[in-house]
Design a binder for these strands. Structure first.
Lengths: 346, 346
DNA sequence: GAGGCGGCGGAGAGCGCTCTACCACGTGCC
DNA sequence: GGCACGTGGTAGAGCGCTCTCCGCCGCCTC
């Protein structure tokens, strides 16, 4: 477009030194005479030099990017593909993941490239992109327990870190939450509040996290003399929360406490409860999970089990960094503790 | 890590042809004898060859990425930086933008790298990233009318396309909505429903879009014998919608129709209305704007003015593509028409 | 049958950077 | 005073790809 961009060579000529010397001051390696450093810096200023990333990548075999991939298991049709992105980001959870990842990456001059892998082709593309050196590694957030992407990545020997333990074992690092403890926290709170007829809306039971939240919840209740708990399975969406709550209420109209496996479903449950004339929390107490943004925007504000998503995402980025740099070779896992946040709904 | 990745050279040797021929097959340029093509393809298969993006970029001066930047005007402190990302994605609007952009990019083998530019340093980083050839151009979504980034980009001669007309004129292409018509649509619907005491919650009046939605709304009402309309300014968030509605209700308790400048604020308004014993839509009709995901998940489902965000975002990507390829040199703008979507709230 | 032409493959020159030599020059040490 | 050594610089060999130029060969034309 405009004149050819200046190269190291141009700066070197301008400063009257060699290309290598300019490269050294740009990258801050080895000792370079302060006077010469100054000379070079001024020459860079004058020429408006910006190092060419492609050239640098070619020799260092390092990019400044990592892939941030949101992965499904499905084989969704092509027409659903952009809807997938919108659907994914409809859950405030992903915004927090992005925030946490960027928080770690940015200070290191790195950037995430966003990829969606909900079809077999899309998954192959992710693998191809990494193999071609488009990014140094992948941060994977699966929306489905049987997601084949982690295995694909591991098989190709590509650096990757997962959010949540994969459905079947894969030699990859991951971060996760002590979901069981989260379920326990919710149960204890409901119990302390004096609830006696407690029910729960779980996440998809194919997802390990849902199972564990439920297990922790159930165990705690059982230990306090509530051997059986009405359960309805939801799908982590507002709608599914409404449906689940509706059926729960039909069979157990005297329910006075509900634990939902995420905040979106809690929101749905609260709506149904109100529509059926129940006051929240007076008649029925509701505890959510995640502590997402909806927890504070909906009314009543949700009492919920907080998942430190930003922190988890940042750790994910850190682990990936270590794998890429070779500072860590064996897969590891970091498990975070949930925390009860008491607001108005319970 | 494992053995060195195979190069074009390796494939060429394996196939018994020259590097150039392999390159031709890989890139599908010029005629290559079908028999030789087959030979090469098999060699690629056997070696597991993946072209090195960095090397390719170095000579073609083209990446396979564009920057998708969410930009503020502020000078937020460092500690707020990851919160910015989470806040941004808390509005379902951005998920739709991402969906639209990816929808256009993906079939072309391109990918978005996510960047946030809410501080002067972050803005400089975006410019630097592009100048270094990290991405071929930028898709900019500003959250503030005085965002300096567009001017920075234009000044540096970098290809960029904006979502929404910039505050001050900048020689860059953009896509936008006919906000005025949106306001008109909302007014007409409220009028047709028989509302007589109509009020509105606007977006931040510093934002041109807010001004225009308001202007279209007011003009239409005036033309139908409603010269003055109670107005409260909001900030496009649920909370601000609640605050605005509260003050509106205090001064005009007999309000029977409300137009809010986005769905999030409509949600807040509905909550306040209910808390004050008003039934929606029976006592007060509420019309939102955007047709975002909350419009269908909240109760009652929102009647709203639809903004074809995915389509707008895809067009933004297309325009950027044209600018990058040089197929388009002069800035242009594409304006989309809003559409009324009638649901339950009005 | 000679000349021209078009289809197809090969050779080789970079793209802009990093990084490993290597060299020139003091300094300190025995 | 000679030698090892540290310091501050240069030279130049690639990194893996694309793309222009070139030459070969077979076919058409007259």
């Amino acid at each position: 477009m405009s004149r050819q961009a200046p190269t190291l060579e141009d700066v070197a000529r301008e400063a009257g030194v060699s290309r290598a010397t300019v490269s050294r001051v740009v990258n801050g390696v080895r000792n370079v005479d302060p006077a010469i450093q100054d000379l070079v810096r001024r020459a860079i200023e004058r020429t408006g030099y910006a190092p060419n990333q492609a050239a640098r990548q070619l020799v260092t075999r390092r990019t400044t990017t990592v892939a941030l991939v949101v992965s499904g298991a499905g084989d969704a049709s092509d027409t659903e593909q952009n809807a997938f992105a919108a659907r994914v980001f409809a859950d405030p959870f992903f915004g927090r993941v992005v925030g946490g990842v960027v928080g770690h990456l940015r200070p290191r001059g790195m950037h995430p490239v966003l990829m969606f892998a909900e079809t077999p082709e899309a998954r192959q593309e992710v693998v191809a992109y990494l193999r071609q050196g488009g990014a140094d590694g992948a941060l994977v957030v699966s929306t489905h327990p049987d997601d084949p992407l982690p295995a694909l990545l591991a098989g190709a020997g590509l650096p990757a870190v997962l959010f949540a333990r994969p459905g079947r074992p894969v030699p990859l690092s991951y971060v996760d939450l002590a979901h069981r403890d989260g379920g326990r926290l919710a149960a204890e709170h409901l119990l302390e509040r004096g609830c006696r007829r407690i029910a729960t809306v779980t996440g998809p039971l194919a997802v390990a996290a849902s199972q564990e939240r439920l297990a922790g919840f159930r165990d705690t209740l059982a230990r306090h003399g509530h051997p059986c708990v009405p359960v309805a399975e939801g799908g982590f969406t507002v709608d599914s929360g409404m449906a689940a709550m509706t059926s729960l209420l039909a069979e157990h109209p005297d329910t006075d406490g509900v634990f939902t496996a995420n905040d979106l479903m809690a929101q749905g449950a609260v709506q149904v409860l109100r529509d059926h004339g129940r006051r929240v929390p007076r008649d029925v107490a509701v505890v959510g999970f995640d502590d997402s943004s909806v927890a504070v925007t909906c009314r009543p504000r949700l009492t919920t089990v907080r998942q430190p998503v930003e922190e988890m995402a940042a750790t994910m980025a850190r682990l990936l960094d270590e794998h890429i740099k070779g500072a860590r070779t064996e897969p590891t896992s970091v498990i975070f503790d949930p925390e009860l946040v008491v607001r108005d709904s319970a």
